[in-house]
Each structure stands twice: as C-alpha cells, then as structure tokens.
Design a binder for these strands. Sequence first.
DNA 1: GTTCCGCATGAATCGATAG
DNA 2: ACTATCGATTCATGCGGAA
Lengths: 287, 287
Amino acid sequence: MKTSTKLLLGDCKTELKKIPSDSVDLIFTSPPYADNRKDTYGGIHPDKYVDWFTPIASELLRTLKPTGTFVLNIKEKVSNGERHTYVLELILQMRKLGWLWTEEFIWHKKNCYPGKWPNRFRDSWERLIQFNKSKKFNMYQEEVMVPMGEWAKSRLKKLSETDKRRDDSRVGSGFGKNISNWLERTKAYPTNVVHLATECSNKNHSAAFPEALPEWFIKLFTKEGDTVLDPFMGSGTTITVAHKMCRKSIGIEIVPDYYYLLKTGIENQNLLLLEQAGVYAPTAKHK
Amino acid sequence: MKTSTKLLLGDCKTELKKIPSDSVDLIFTSPPYADNRKDTYGGIHPDKYVDWFTPIASELLRTLKPTGTFVLNIKEKVSNGERHTYVLELILQMRKLGWLWTEEFIWHKKNCYPGKWPNRFRDSWERLIQFNKSKKFNMYQEEVMVPMGEWAKSRLKKLSETDKRRDDSRVGSGFGKNISNWLERTKAYPTNVVHLATECSNKNHSAAFPEALPEWFIKLFTKEGDTVLDPFMGSGTTITVAHKMCRKSIGIEIVPDYYYLLKTGIENQNLLLLEQAGVYAPTAKHK
DNA sequence: GTTCCGCATGAATCGATAG
DNA sequence: ACTATCGATTCATGCGGAA
C-alpha cells in the first residue's frame, strides 16, 4: 500500500503549474470565503471573487483526470442585508471555462454558528458543488451507503444487544453471520444532503469542516492509490484524511505556519505507522 | 375573524394585473419547473425560463407590500447530465428587476423520490428563495420556534437551578432579569434549513409540497388577516393552508380543472365552518 | 469505569460607533 | 457617504474534571 503526500508552500495560482495535466482523481477544497482570511489571500472582496478564482479554476481543470471530480465547499456571505451573488456567478463562470456543473450537494450542519437577528435565522448549510471535466466520471456509490431509516436502525440496535447477551450462551453457533447479512440488507444509498456536525472546540486543530466531510467524498469519488488535491489546504483536514485512507495527495498552502505544521504532522503519522507495524507484527507471531 | 379567498382563472401574467399594488404580505409559490406541466404553461424550455418569468416577477414586485416577502420554491432540473443554470440566472435577473435576494432556505425532504442512477444520488432538497422589496420586512420569528435539542434542554434545566441559588445572594443587581430569560428557554429559533417530509400517496390530490411547508412560511412572514398570494396555485396547497390559518388569500391558476376543484373545496370548507357555528353556538347557550 | 456538569468555542450577522 | 472595528446575540458539541 504505497501512498505519498506532497505538500507545496505558496500561492496555488502559481504552485498548481507544477502539477502534471490529467493526473488528479479528486479535488476537494474549501477556498477562503470572500472577506475571510484577510491575513493570507488578502481577504478577497466579494465583487472581485470570481475574477480571483478564474485562473485557479482553469489550472484545476488542467490537472484533473477526465474521469475525476472537483468538489467545491463554499457559501456566500451576507452583504448589506442580502446574500451576495458571487457563488452563483462563479458557477456560471466555471461553465464558461469548460467545467460541467454536475450536482450541488448540501452540507447540513448540525451545529451551526449561534446568533439572533431580526431579519434572518442562523445559517446552517453550505454548498458542496460538484464539477466534472466530462460526463463519464468515477463514482463508487456503494462505499458511502448508509443504514436505512430510523425504524430499521433502532430495530437493529435492539436486535444486536439481545444477540450480544445470547451470544454468551451460544458460542460458535454461526448466528453472528446472519446478523451481518441483516446489516448489509438495511443499507441504502444516501442522498445529495450530507448531515454532519462541525468539529468545534477541538483543542489541537480547528478546521473549517469535520474530517467526515472530505472522507465521504474521497470514498465516493476515489479508490485506494488515487490522487487527491487540495489547493487551499489550511489546517490540512482533506490531506490528513486522504493520507489515512491510503490515497496519494497533494496539498498547497500559502501560510508557512500551516504548511510546516502539517508537514510535521504527516511525518509523525508515517513514523507512527512504522512503529505500529514494528510493534504489532512480531507479537502476532507469538500467538 | 374575516378571511377571504379570491380565486382567479387564467395566466398569471395577465391575471396579476387585477391585483392592486402594495397589497400582498406574502407570495409563496412553486412555479412550473422547466419542461414540466407541458400541458399548461407550454412546458417552458430551460433556456427560455428566465425570459418567461421576468414579466411575472415584475408584476409580483408591484403587488407586494414594502414589508412583504416573496418565497420561491424551485429546483433546477438535470439537463444533459448537468444541473441547468436557469435558477441561478433567475436570481441574478430578479435582482436586476429590483428584488433583494435576502436568503436561501433549504427544504430538506425527509423522504425524497426513490431511484438510482450511476452518476448521481437521489435529490432530497429544494431551494426556498426569499426575496424582499425592502430591507425592512415583517418577520415573526417566535411563531416558528422549535424545541431545543435534548442535550441542551436537560443541561439548561440544571443550570438554571444553580443560577437561582446565586440569584438569592445578589438581589437587585439586575442579574435576575437575565435568569428569567434563561429559565423560559426551552425553545430555540430554527435555522434556514427546513426539514419536512413530503406528503406521499395522498389519494385525492398530489401536491408539489406538504401543507407544513407553506404553513411554516405563512407563520413566519404573516399574521392573521394578512394577505397571501400564490400565482401558480396548482392543487391549491398554499391557498388551502392560508385559509385555514385565517389569512386572506389570492390564488391564480391556468388549468380550469384545478381552479374549479379548489373553488368547490373552499366553498365546502366555508359551509362547514358555518355549519359548525350553527351547531355549536346555540348549544353553548344551553350550558 | 460510568455519568454528569461546567466551559470554551466556532467560515456568523447586525447595529452602533469611530475615522 | 463609505469603510473598519467592536460588542451582543445564541446553541450544539467535545473535552476535562467531578460525583
């Protein structure tokens, strides 16, 4: 299982040129939202957002394999009491560049930012816009199947608890195998709404999105050994997950602190894997 | 409690002209999606959708009160493997006409249409796009508050007891006022994701959306006696709900069958109300 | 070892105040 | 008039210490 993680320090507009054409299976990224991250990408003004993103989108199109997918996590800000239109304009612009707008997934955030205003409710969803280079792209739907509705879920829960108790008195009866059959039959294909909580107050790293989010799309659009690209790496959630899932990955980050933090993190992770191999492999022999 | 329901038979583009300016508090509608309802509005081609809707949007803007709200339920079709862009273009066009794009709610359908395709999942959400005529509009947020999450509820209960004790030792510090705020907090404001089930297999009428959907927005944006308009009435869900909720309403429908069906339905409903009044009012006297 | 509670913390938004 | 900063508002979640 050979994986590699390549990290690039710099502005993705230029760093992307180092990546060969038709080489990436999945681009999953969350670019700085307009007027955010002032310290890094200069806090792009909403009105300039499309112009800023256009050359990057072109480079991304070049690097993606024809069978690959680009998932863009973004949400428009409120500006002067209205939702700003730069995301809508961005989608139209991307199509002009040659991207296909295949789908729009919704990330329904279980725990969204609090607050109260006279004219609007809390914003609890973000866009996950799926673009493709061609109509034929890889999609591994079975990898993200979910347990069926609450009815089946609760029933299974009780069933399995009963079975646990029964299992003590029925060792080796082959009953467990039936259960696993049940489990597989109660799975269904998901929809285009992903319902996940954000990971806040995580001491070590505060990411824009939870690991489960890139994990879901990496499972859906890549297989082991494929290449995942995140041109706006940030704290590196996408890259970390890709690495854990045995995908090759390329991350680009403009802030040195983030870059070096993740570089060290990945190196430690590799070391840990080596250690574990060193620890567990021999003990297994002693059995 | 005087309510009225006015039903108009015809193309809303012309029928809307009969409605006075600045007279409507809420427009809630689900227009025929592109290429749907071929028999009625001629199955508007996706590429012509914005042009077709523009004059209607202008008329709607005229009829709405400055404090009113327009909620548009719509979702783009898949066309040639891509999501069509007519909804995005429509939003941009509406702003050119003078509408403010205040917010986009998501209707997350609990039970969405079944199906399986190799390149996409089932579509389980629709847009509920909120437009306004001015930045100051009526919004009755308390009307749609929801029970807090189980976790917060149990914790708050205990927290408030601690605070009660503290309150005894701090009389007159103005602290008590905050406490009473917290004590009554068993409900929370909702978010901009509305999570409702579709009404499937309703024998008599197949509506585009469940009654709970217009009900939520009617509660949120109008009070009793206000006027609700649905220019694409269809089977009349919005109008029926508005009538039940003691709002005045205006419905426009181009298909005679739908029009007469609802006309009869509303008349029967009124008759029922009269009957009930006739039955129960006298018995009350005998008590 | 559980369960319970206190606390910090968010890709937020508005309105007021200040340059 | 137009932009920049700041405080107030609010709620689900995970962590860590306590019973």
